[in-house]
Amino acid sequence: MAEQLPEEFVSDILSSHVNSPGQLLPILLDVQHKVGYLPEEGVQTIAEFLGIDVGEIYSVASFYSQFRLTPIGKYHIQVCRGTACHIRGAPRILGELENQTGISEGETSSDMKYTLETVACMGCCALAPAIKVNSNVHGELTTRKADEVMHSLPEEETDDS
């Protein structure tokens, strides 16, 4: 994860964008992608760059499910709650992962090890139920296989999702 301070990251990211209408979402996605969330100072920098209100940025960011305002854990676990996954047992998988990590959907563990979220679908519906840990998708899960995935997570992996 970030060795640089989040706001330095944001300045780097801004240098690759031009200030033209419609750049807000691409910039926010870029920041979220590289920093993992939208840091407060970063949002301020973006507002100055685009010449718009901080409030406007938060209003847009809150509309979209991709954006997070707090840092994410080392392991970003996304459980699919799409239809194919739902009818093939996604609720059970989510329950198992909540047990394993000790956190609920939408939370990050206090040791910053896990963030647990649900997503609408990741295109792996044929091998439902599916989860994604950082950038790796695991399909055809059972609660046992979900356990195995959790136990096989290396200690030092970083989030490159």
Partner: peptide, 25 residues
Amino acid sequence: IFQGAGAFVCGESTALVRSIEGGRG
């Protein structure tokens, strides 16, 4: 390429357009 930011309603034509324009979809 324009990447969506996760909102089902943005598949609707006018919402999609607003999203590319940088606003709430």
